[in-house]
Amino acid sequence: MSLLQVKNLRVEFPTRRGTLVALDDVSFEIAPGEVLGVVGESGAGKSMTGAAIIGLLEPPGRIASGEILLEGRRIDNLPYEKMRRIRGREIGTIFQDPLTTLNPLYTIGRQLVETITTHLPVGPGEAREKAIGWLELVGIPAARERIDSYPHEFSGGMRQRVVIALALCAEPKLIVADEPTTALDVSIQAQVIAMLKTLAREKGTAMMLVTHDMGVIAETADRVAVMYAGRISEIGPVRQLVRHARHPYSQGLMGSIPPLDRRVERLQQIDGAMPRLSAIPRGCAFNPRCPRVFDRCLVERPELMDAGTTRASCWLYAEGAPA
């Protein structure tokens, strides 16, 4: 059974000028121990999906329809207090900026111990030992001495390690990581990714990894979901998606990444920009930018369908598509 199921999720933002649909009919599953990468450009709805799962949508955003199930139990309609228990205990979160995740007034030890004692049946002494163990595991040198330091006494990379320890210390089954390495320098980013990957594998933790960096996804994820304008445009195994993307948007996205191993005269580019939520085109939302657009794309919205190695929401893979 899958650990997390998201079924036909729709998130709306009521505004004075009408209701904006930020997520529309998003469905996917994550198996225990699996890493699902979620990619897309800014405004595609990747962070919004993560926020909806952990029950932290910014008001006035709300789940208008659809279901989110954790181990078969619905969690999208739980009261705040119950959801708070699940957050931390069963779903850990890692955000982009470690400074806003950590409380600057408490030592990192106190924050870790509090999280552990809240969620696990252990006393303060044991919790402290566990906390030191976690800090060692995420690669903080001299963890025993540094546990009583404040967040500002750590560098950015070290702080993100503390955040990861904090997300993992209650031993959740799922981690929602929103751009966990974006604020870090490349050499530190590589250290953190390698560590996240090992930990997830060792502990059997599943992960939803939201990022705009395809390189990070290619290295870490088992499966990838590509989002565009609030919908999943393609989902499939990472190798297939990176090497043989089926949806023209995914193809463009992969093609526009500058290659490291050679110089190209002209980079492949996707013309135009993603539509605003208030002006999503009729039919397929990608149709104004799509190089392979045909008449059906302009009027009918495609659902995810079998596209060979992946599933793509693109009419090219329906019957009767132009060759």
């Binding site: 490349v186 050499s187 590589a190 990070v216 290619a218 290659p259 191993d261």
Partner: peptide
């Protein structure tokens, strides 16, 4: 240190320290 698309699954040895 750069995660590379071509090298899916490659084990990298990141440089230590900061």
């Amino acid at each position: 240190a750069i995660p590379d698309l071509e090298m899916t699954g490659r084990q990298r040895i990141p440089v230590g320290g900061e």
